[in-house]
């Protein structure tokens, strides 16, 4: 097995901030907008270094999305920053009409996604955003797994023409992918090769999947781990190659099982290679206050839950 080492826990939102800072220095077409959450989104450095290219819009997300759409007219590449809840559900129609349908080159960058936002509770813990965004024609949907990958993705989406939803989070999570890596939109990464089961994870559950795979290996079960950082477009080729070998799959994400990565995977498999699948995801519920670790435990989103799901899906294998 490959060995992955946590280089020290870091928040993915800081990876976004680091990427945005670098973009500010090397791409003068990149502009950024924030709705009164500069500190939370780690946009401080970009703002300080590029005051002309930074727009504080106040607590007015709908206006922010419209202004971002307008800024593309004239050749700019706007990055909007607010919490995932206010980046999607609150402004769905603005994104739909002024950005997606209008083909505007806006990067919607969303922090504090999912339960692990923690103590603020369900009002802020959106678990439906991947579904909302992936349903919009032409929208690219990315959910990165750690600091380094979030930084790499932030740099990569500036080079991609078209609307992008980039999802990351608040808590510090293991940082285990290489520094200064390249990021290929739509290309899943095989982190661990295995033969008995595929674990397809996105976001910080990729680390949980790696931990689960190691524990399973100790029990004699060989798990293949995929890092599906891009949910749309989904890397169907890598997915199908993996299940052709393993014959069963567990999807893992910090999102409702309705509308998330797991659903995209099952749609692909049902068309090309029907495969037993278990879903590590929230079960059509809202969240609640708690620490990230408590919430991941209670809602079944950690490596233990992944292990149990693997044992379940193995029983269903033909």
């Amino acid at each position: 097995m490959k060995k992955y080492t946590d280089q020290g826990k870091k928040d993915t939102r800081s990876g976004f901030g680091a990427g945005l800072t670098e973009l500010g220095r090397k791409n003068n077409k990149v502009v950024a907008l924030c709705a009164d959450l500069i500190g939370s989104l780690k946009m401080d450095t970009f703002m300080a270094e590029n005051p002309d290219r930074f727009f504080q819009v106040g607590i007015a997300e709908a206006n922010m999305m419209g202004i971002a759409a307008g800024l593309t007219i004239g050749g700019y590449i706007p990055f909007t920053g607010t919490f995932a809840n206010f980046s999607t559900g609150r402004v769905y129609d603005q994104i739909r009409q002024s950005i997606a349908y209008s083909h505007k080159n806006v990067k919607i960058c969303a922090s504090h996604a999912g339960l692990t936002l923690g103590e603020d509770g369900a009002t802020h813990q959106i678990l439906e955003d991947i579904g909302l965004m992936k349903m919009l024609p032409g929208m690219t949907v990315i959910n990165t797994c750690d600091f380094n990958q979030t930084k790499a993705a932030t740099l990569a989406i500036a080079e991609h023409h078209g609307p992008v939803y980039l999802r990351f989070g608040r808590p510090k999570v293991p940082n285990f992918t290489p520094e200064n890596q390249s990021f290929e939109i739509g290309k899943a990464l095989v982190l661990q090769e295995g033969t008995d089961v595929t674990i397809a994870a996105t976001g910080h559950l990729v680390w949980e999947a790696l931990v689960a795979a190691e524990n399973l290996n100790n029990q004699g079960i060989s798990a293949e781990v995929l890092n599906i950082h891009t949910i749309k477009p989904l890397d169907e080729e890598t997915l199908l190659q993996s299940v052709a070998k393993t014959g069963c799959i567990v999807s893992a994400e910090e999102h409702n099982y309705l509308g998330g990565l797991g659903e995209s995977i099952s749609r692909t498999l049902s068309r090309h290679n029907p495969t037993p699948q278990e879903f590590i995801a929230t079960q059509d519920t809202f969240g609640e206050s708690g620490t990230p670790a408590q919430l991941m435990e209670k809602y079944g989103l950690n490596n233990k839950a992944i292990e149990e799901a693997v044992l379940q899906v193995l029983k269903r294998k033909a």
């Binding site: 002309d52 727009f55 971002a68 759409a69 307008g70 800024l71 007219i73 004239g74 706007p78």
Partner: peptide, 27 residues
Amino acid sequence: VRIASGSLGQGMSVAIGAALAKRLNKD
């Protein structure tokens, strides 16, 4: 046509964004 419209209330934000772009472009 430079933006879709029809769902009401969105055009002023877009126009502001385009005006900001003009300012950045020194247009």
